[in-house]
Nucleic acid binder design. Structure first.
Lengths: 137, 137
DNA sequence: CCCTACGTTGGACAAGGTCTAAGTCAAGGC
DNA sequence: GCCTTGACTTAGACCTTGTCCAACGTAGGG
């Protein structure tokens, strides 16, 4: 959080109340909010913050590599603040809850050259699906 | 295709011209159309077919397990007719082209019990990202 | 303390998808 | 073959998610 803001300042970010609030709302583990949820929580602390600013800020954080976009299904994109540590996701099919997980092995190297079709492969996303203990009960 | 229609009849599907056309449009390998693309191609063969019917039919095929939804980013969901053979996807970040790929190993078993958080895990989706040879040139 | 370029705002707009009420038609029964 | 009926289709309104813009506000260098 403070770390994040510091890094952003060093990269020429102007530090506004809105950006601070968005960064605060996103801090923590296993946080995967939609843009609207970020906006709702930000509004609690800074009532006048606009949707456009939330989208702008999220977009900037994504291109700076501080935030990860997670698109699970065709609904709203979620944002994952845990972008600096590589990880994958475990998604509950019923309630949509997401957990960060760390499978064994390296998924990237599991794709043989013959299956790359000439692509330059740079990244891989793994999403496990299932039912969380809460929904199973 | 004919196989597909036969399976659907056996499951009580009423066989209409619209459903036939949607099934036809989707047949083939490495096909990953958006709902709108399906609608456009279906319209060539059956001009009056409506968007709602295309969405309905796609949704039904997905719940019958004949079609796979692929949501790559926040843009339109794509539909993959290759649902009966397990496979994963390789996506071009620039133009959005998707290829079906078959990595080595079993991604499902790569998630240790300690990383399952009590979830009943049933499925895993792997999406490789990169640049396709066309866009690289 | 001022200036100015960067940031924020609200509202209009666009794309993707869902819903509904009214009309149509596949297919089983005669 | 023809009727009947409930499943299917239709057009269009509507919703959600996300983008764009022109006018306004302000962080931070000088």
């Amino acid at each position: 959080m403070s770390d994040l803001l510091k890094r952003l300042r060093e990269r020429g970010w102007r530090l506004t109340a809105q950006r601070r609030v968005v960064a605060e709302v996103l801090s923590g583990d296993h946080i995967h909010l939609t843009a609207d949820e970020v906006h709702a929580r930000a509004t609690e602390r800074l009532p006048e913050i606009s949707r456009a600013t939330v989208y702008n800020t999220l977009g900037e954080l994504v291109s700076l590599g501080e935030l990860l976009e997670v698109s699970t299904d065709h609904r709203a994109t979620r944002y994952d603040p845990n972008a600096r540590r590589p990880h994958h996701h475990l998604l509950c099919d019923r309630c949509g809850t997401i957990r960060d997980v760390h499978p064994t092995g390296d998924a990237l190297s599991a794709l043989p050259e013959s299956e790359r079709f000439g692509y330059t492969v740079s990244d891989v996303a793994l999403t496990y699906r299932g039912i969380c203990p809460n929904c199973a009960a």
